[in-house]
């Protein structure tokens, strides 16, 4: 048995989510190789080679893969993945984009967002916004899997010395082109891997007021998240959204401020270790999942909290 893990990276370095996907791959019990597909991605390839327990790192370094266009990457992964029993990737926006394409090219199902490996063909995955956990069994000889990264503890990033070799043909489907991107740059930890997350909702009233969260985030080394309502209202960019259809987080501490606790929001954060809710409505559903609830006006509570931590 063999497993190919598809690396999530930014060409220069490996994203932490790759280490969670490797952990899930280990649970499958097979030999693991990593595929790094990108453009000028040697940095990411070297980082992948340092992950312990990896057989080899396969690198497809070509301009066609630089921006991870699904039309091109999927052809590559289907070609390289043909030799493997399992193809595993973290359930990031990027991998969610091309992995189902890979599955369709191979004529197999994709098993999305697994949270546990019961056996080589049986997996657990949340459905209905995480209100239900389904156990599913795959009848396909080859399994295409995306991994909910918060459900698998990252493996170590250092200590290995896998061989690195070039692989795959250059696949340029010629039907899509990268035009541009607007990527938020921030000195804060990444939302999906931060130990502490503080999120604001519609109760924040506007984007300017998110500054009230920043001071606390600075002191706690926290990432800042948001509810969909805050994103929709234009307070903050979409990449800060936590929830069923946004990012899934499970930090040691999650602080929800001015967030009511809709099921779609809870789906993205209720596996956090400790949850704090600050809301002026004592009946807000967020209090049902909060370990510590503070019924207060956030405009009073936040400055006080910042001064006391």
């Amino acid at each position: 048995m063999s497993t190919l893990v598809i690396a999530e990276h930014d060409n220069a370095s490996l994203k932490g989510t790759t280490l969670n996907a490797v952990a899930a791959a280990q649970a499958l019990g097979a030999d693991i190789d990593i595929l790094v597909a990108g453009g000028s991605c040697d940095g990411a390839a070297q980082a992948a080679a340092a992950v312990p327990g990896i057989g080899k790192v396969l690198v497809a370094d070509n301009a066609a893969y630089e921006h991870q266009l699904a039309e091109n990457i999927s052809l590559l992964v289907a070609e390289v993945g043909a030799a493997y029993d399992n193809i595993v990737a973290p359930a990031t926006a990027n991998c969610k984009n091309f992995m189902p394409r890979v599955a369709a090219l191979l004529d197999v199902a994709q098993i999305s967002d697994i949270t546990a490996v019961d056996s080589a063909d049986t997996f657990e995955r949340p459905i209905y916004a995480g209100n239900v956990i389904a156990t599913v069994q795959s009848a396909d000889a080859k399994k295409v899997i995306t991994v909910r990264t918060t459900a698998f503890d990252a493996v170590a990033s250092e200590g290995g010395s896998a061989t690195v070799e070039a692989c795959g043909a250059v696949h340029d489907a010629g039907i899509s082109a990268f035009v541009g991107e607007e990527v938020a740059v921030s000195d804060r930890p990444e939302l999906t891997s931060a130990d502490v997350v503080i999120s604001g909702g519609r109760g924040m009233q506007n984007g300017e007021n998110f500054k009230l969260l920043e001071g606390i985030a600075d002191k706690l080394g926290a990432a800042i998240g948001a509810s969909r309502a805050a994103v929709d209202a234009g307070f903050v960019p979409n990449d800060m959204q936590v929830g069923q259809t946004g990012k899934i987080v499970a930090p040691d501490l999650y602080i929800a401020v001015g967030i009511s606790g809709a099921i779609q929001h809870l789906a993205g954060m209720k596996d956090s270790k400790v949850i704090v809710a600050i809301n002026k409505d004592e009946d807000a559903p967020i209090f049902q999942v909060a370990d510590y609830g503070l019924v207060a006006d956030l405009f009073d509570a936040l400055p006080e909290l910042e001064s006391k931590i």
Partner: peptide, 8 residues
């Protein structure tokens, strides 16, 4: 996308 917005 995860980091923000991408146009294709």
């Amino acid at each position: 996308v995860d980091g923000g917005l991408q146009t294709v």
